[in-house]
């Protein structure tokens, strides 16, 4: 891995690839001669975008946990449950599997994603030490893959809200948390997408040697 030949990148080769048509142009060209797209060797302000989306995701995640996810009104009595409250309730009803699934999908994965993105974004800025670029890539892949699955709560609420509408008898409405949770997941996905993976090996390349 330490061979410079192997470390040859597009940028090192003086090339810049079009992000739209993947056509390679010499470095310095500003627009793709093929599709007319804007050319840049790296995504501009990639890390900034990552952090910005990440922050927005964190902000949206707070109300997602504080406010009720789902409001159930049954025969005139309203019940509102937050994500963690729902998990605890499920545990009380001895629905351990569902509780674990919900807890995993709605609590563990978002938090893990935040942590993973933050870790990647900070690790990129540092010289490669203990963490290999390969590991970072892998983590990034996992984060990108798993991002869409953490919407499971929102899906459940959305489906229930659409189906269970029996006026006075029983009806389910999405709470504020559903919206903010969806926003939070969206922001995290955007945050993961904003990360230019090429920065990983940029960072691992000692430029001044």
């Amino acid at each position: 891995m330490a061979h410079p030949e192997i470390r040859l990148t597009a940028r090192a080769a003086g090339l810049v690839a079009c992000r739209h048509c993947a056509h390679v142009w010499p470095a310095g060209s500003h627009s793709c001669g093929f599709c007319g797209g804007h050319l840049s060797s790296r995504v501009p302000q990639s890390l900034q975008k990552v952090w910005a989306w990440w922050t927005a995701g964190i902000i949206a995640y707070i109300p997602a946990n504080l406010f009720p996810m789902m409001k159930t009104s049954m025969l005139g009595s309203d019940t509102a449950s937050t994500i963690l409250g729902g998990v605890v309730e499920l545990l009380h009803h001895h629905a351990y599997f569902v509780a674990i699934v919900v807890f995993f999908a709605s609590v563990c994965i978002p938090i893990a994603k935040f942590m993973a993105i933050a870790w990647i974004a900070t690790a990129i800025r540092r010289p490669r030490g203990s963490v290999s670029a390969h590991q970072l890539h892998r983590v990034h892949d996992v984060v990108e893959f798993i991002g869409r699955w953490s919407m499971i709560d929102v899906f459940v609420v959305a489906i229930l809200s659409a189906l269970v509408q029996f006026s006075v008898v029983v009806s389910i409405h999405p709470g504020l948390a559903a919206i903010s949770f969806a926003a939070s997941v969206g922001f995290t996905m955007l945050s993961a997408q904003s990360l230019d993976p090429r920065l990983i090996y940029d960072a691992s390349e000692p430029l001044h040697e």
């Binding site: 940028r11 003086g14 810049v16 010499p26 470095a27 310095g28 840049s40 060797s41 790296r42 501009p44 302000q45 900034q48 975008k49 910005a52 989306w53 922050t55 927005a56 902000i59 949206a60 800025r125 926003a183 922001f187 904003s194 940029d202 430029l207």
Partner: peptide, 30 residues
């Protein structure tokens, strides 16, 4: 001769630093 082009996006080069528009999103959220 590509290196000057590289300079633009060099992390160490701070002269072209500007805030990304995306920051509007968290600010708006806040």
């Amino acid at each position: 001769d590509d290196i000057p082009g590289m300079e633009i996006s060099d992390p160490k080069g701070r002269r072209g630093f500007r805030f990304s528009v995306v920051w509007v999103v968290p600010l708006a959220a806040v």
